[in-house]
Design a protein around this nucleic acid. Structure first.
Lengths: 338, 338
DNA sequence: CCTGGCACTCTTCCCATGCGAGTGCCAGCA
DNA sequence: TGCTGGCACTCGCATGGGAAGAGTGCCAGG
């Protein structure tokens, strides 16, 4: 077990390294932090920390930098979440309140997160599968063509075209619309399949084909995985990454373009609070030198989607976690109001 | 006026520089292109081209590289548009045909463009202002709450919430829906304001407040500028830019995040064909070392939006222009079919 | 267990040097 | 008049040798 002072040394190393971006030596440490011991003692502690794998030195005669394991310990034990200041909170709220629709909420959230953390922000659209149905609308665009519009409680709208096997009268359409809504409005998406399974039985024989086609389109829309969209912003912040650009930045940009990768990344975080994945803890290779700070957000008590930031492992974890948490909280509020 | 051979020399310089990314000298030129003259002669030509401002040398004793003006001449006079090969065209078509909705069409187009050109792709969503109304739907979500859904001929769907000043019955709603659609369905957005201006007169006095509120929301939706959305992809290709990364790439990433900037950029291109803006021809400073190749696309004969790529001024113009043109053409087809 | 001191190891910076690529100019030739 | 070969010249860039500096590890003493 590491002594209290050694933990303090580790904390100091992380803080200094995050600040200066340069390997930190024993002398500098004692000067900038009042540890009450001499550099020599710190050196011993550092040697111990290195043996345990918490820090490493890039070259023999350079200072130390934290390893992924070191950051992990720092995040878990040595640092809390730095709360936003009151003015910051007000700014967040003001900025988000100006949004006019869901797209705008997400866009603003991305900008905000990127600005606050000076990192790359990723915001997932509220997921369909975890939200509830507000309304289902059916429009007859042609005798045998129906448009299905699905509206969710988070304000999201999905539409699909349905080509009917037979002409479908306005009366039948109104009937179906009414029956459909009375069954599914306000219900969770997950429950919809069961709620509508016998709906076709209520219709005349010649309409059943169309009805079941509409229903299956609806179910398709509900499960469609590609609807797990997300928005990214602040990629310009990647340029602050390091000095050896091409190699560092390229795989990250590539990973960010793969929405699948990002969704998996966000999805992995099961924790109810803020989740931090550091360096190699990220499954995707391109993100091995980055950390991902993410958290769920939602309109009610429950999380309907995730948001987070991607940055260098050398990041200000307490501050970033605070910003991410605060933004998630306010986005949730905004969604609940609208 | 430049002699024929000098133009050939310029063309050769551009081609070689684009290929090798290195300043090209007189000897290399005569070896790789059969100009039929000696290096010394080429040197004279180069001196002349430099005097005219078409090429420049980074340092005194290095080869020449084309200037923006040189690229401009190359694009305008010396090179055509390189058509896609048949297999390439098939690949484009296949890839785009798999799209399920508008979002997917745009997303696929971005990926495709980025892959084909190995540059950053930008695709604007079909603009509202230039398209026509397919259908307007009104849903009563609560006694005094109406949702307005607007569906365009390009498959785009916009929705807005309307809080009514007074409760609004289902009958009135159906009436308004019918009247509204009979007037605006199939019409161009630009014409809508005039078509609906006296619509409120047809209603009972107590409903007029709500009707005019619905109408003004509709008009707002039509003009709302922020709806000129766009999608970006292939930013990882920026890493192929040059060797002096941070300085080059940063402003570009920043510019790409500013949707306003990009929209302006695409909007400036008035040409019916492929437009190329080279280096300093771009108003935005961050894009002074990039070229933008863009073109309009649309479902019918008319362009409803733009798409294009952003890359280094040192790019394969004929190939890029060919790819951009081909993709625009096929996207237009896909939109027309759906 | 902490501290000061000391020798050692690397990296980095700087400068001088040499090389090579490419140019500009000139005199000769068609 | 325009092309060609030759030649001297200019620079940028890579190479190598110090010298400096930062930081470490270890040891003996408090």
């Amino acid at each position: 077990m590491l002594s209290e002072r050694r933990l303090q040394v580790l904390r100091a190393i992380v803080q200094d390294y995050v600040g200066t971006e340069e390997p930190v030596g024993s002398k500098a440490l004692t000067e900038r932090h009042s540890l009450g011991v001499s550099p020599a003692t710190v050196r011993n502690d550092m040697a111990a920390l290195e043996d345990e794998g918490y820090i490493a030195q890039p070259h023999t005669s350079a200072g130390r930098i934290p390893t992924d394991k070191g950051y992990r310990l720092f995040v878990d034990k040595l640092a809390g979440v730095k709360p936003m200041t009151a003015p910051e909170r007000r700014a967040i709220q003001n900025f988000l309140e100006g949004a006019v629709d869901l797209d705008d909420v997400v866009a603003r959230t991305v900008r905000l997160l990127a600005q606050l953390t000076r990192q790359v922000a990723v915001v997932q659209y509220p997921s369909l599968t975890r939200s509830t149905v507000r309304h289902v609308e059916l429009l007859s665009l042609a005798p045998a063509r129906v448009m299905l519009v699905l509206i969710t409680d988070t304000g999201r709208v999905e539409q699909r075209m349905v080509d009917c096997p037979a002409p479908f009268g306005e009366a039948s359409l109104a009937d179906l619309r009414a029956r459909l809504n009375s069954r599914v409005a306000g219900r969770r998406f997950a429950d919809v399949p069961k709620l509508v399974e016998d709906l076709a039985d209520a219709f005349e024989h010649e309409d059943r084909g169309t009805v079941s086609m509409v229903l299956s389109t609806l179910l398709e829309t509900l499960v469609e995985e590609n609807e797990e969209r997300l928005m990214i912003g602040g990629t310009a912040n990647l340029t602050r990454f390091g000095h050896d650009f091409p190699l560092t930045i390229r795989p990250v940009l590539e990973a960010l373009e793969e929405q699948v990768v990002l969704l998996k990344l966000l999805g992995e975080a099961k924790d109810p609070g803020v989740t931090v994945r550091i360096g190699h803890e990220n499954a995707h290779e391109g993100l091995n030198s980055t950390s991902v700070v993410s958290v769920g957000y939602g309109s009610g008590g429950e999380a309907v989607a995730k948001l987070g930031v991607v940055g260098p492992t050398r990041m200000d974890y307490p501050g970033t976690m605070g910003a991410v948490r605060a933004v998630a909280r306010y986005v949730g509020q905004i969604l609940a109001e609208s």
